[in-house]
């Protein structure tokens, strides 16, 4: 296994609510290597969402340092963080979070637009990505014309389209029935086998059971890492 793609050193994230301080994450150290398949588990309020937001560069820590591909993210401003999210991280959400007014193809093309690809190239790459997730025949459909499983496949295609090194999935099967959920998990395994680092935030033991590494969070601390 190569060097860590993600490294959290003494990372804390506090929320200040008047006089109260909520320590969502408190002095956490984690290293995740390239190509790992990791589940982050824990009850609600344990800090797993906060950790995902921090790893996904949607949030910045109160203290500590996060390295993505050995790059210190605390030195980056909002513009650079957006660039980093675009290039290195692909998000998959429980509620899919597709752009409702756009069809499947346009949704998948959007990250490519922010990456600066010309129109024709965008279309090629996006079509290819949709083929990969088995939606080659649904490209012109809007999200509201598709099933939950199909929507999640679009979201996965969108996450993969810029060829990021990290896929961050937040309860990706949470809104799906068990059969569809299985299929989506198969897809993640396939993606992982192609060399992508996959991190899955879940509280479903069936999901974490399929991951190679499980990090258990409790009250902002790592309770277990196996």
């Amino acid at each position: 296994m190569a060097g860590p793609v993600i490294e959290l050193t003494e990372v804390s994230r506090y929320y200040y609510m008047g006089e109260f301080v909520i320590k969502a994450l408190d002095n956490v150290n984690v290293r995740i290597g390239t190509g790992e398949y990791t589940a982050i588990m824990g009850p609600s309020g344990s800090g797993k969402s906060t950790m995902m937001h921090l790893v996904g560069c949607l949030d910045t820590p109160t203290a500590g340092t996060i390295y993505i591909d050995a790059e210190d993210t605390s030195a980056l401003n909002e513009e650079d963080l957006a660039y980093l999210r675009n290039a290195k991280i692909g998000f998959v959400f429980q509620q899919f979070n597709l752009l409702a007014k756009m069809n499947a193809l346009e949704n998948v093309m959007t990250p490519l637009m922010y990456a600066g690809y010309p129109m024709r190239r965008r279309k090629e790459i996006a079509e290819n990505a949709l083929e990969q997730v088995g939606l080659g025949d649904r490209m012109k459909h809007r999200p509201n014309e598709l099933s939950g499983g199909q929507k999640q496949r679009i979201a996965i295609a969108r996450a993969l389209v810029n060829d990021p090194s990290i896929i961050l999935a937040d309860e990706p099967t949470g809104a799906l029935d068990s059969v569809t959920g299985e299929q989506i998990m198969d897809l993640f395994e396939k993606i992982n086998s192609q060399g992508k680092t996959v991190i899955m935030v879940t509280h479903d033991p069936e999901v974490s059971g399929r991951c190679k590494r499980v990090i258990n969070l409790r009250d902002g601390h790592i309770a277990e890492d196996r």
Binding site: G56, E79, A82, Y83, R85, N97, T110, Y114, R158
Partner: peptide, 16 residues
């Protein structure tokens, strides 16, 4: 707001 959040997550910078 939601659309803006999604766009930011997939790499839209504040300027964009």
């Amino acid at each position: 707001t939601k659309e803006i959040g999604i766009r930011k997550a997939i790499g839209a910078s504040p300027r964009r």
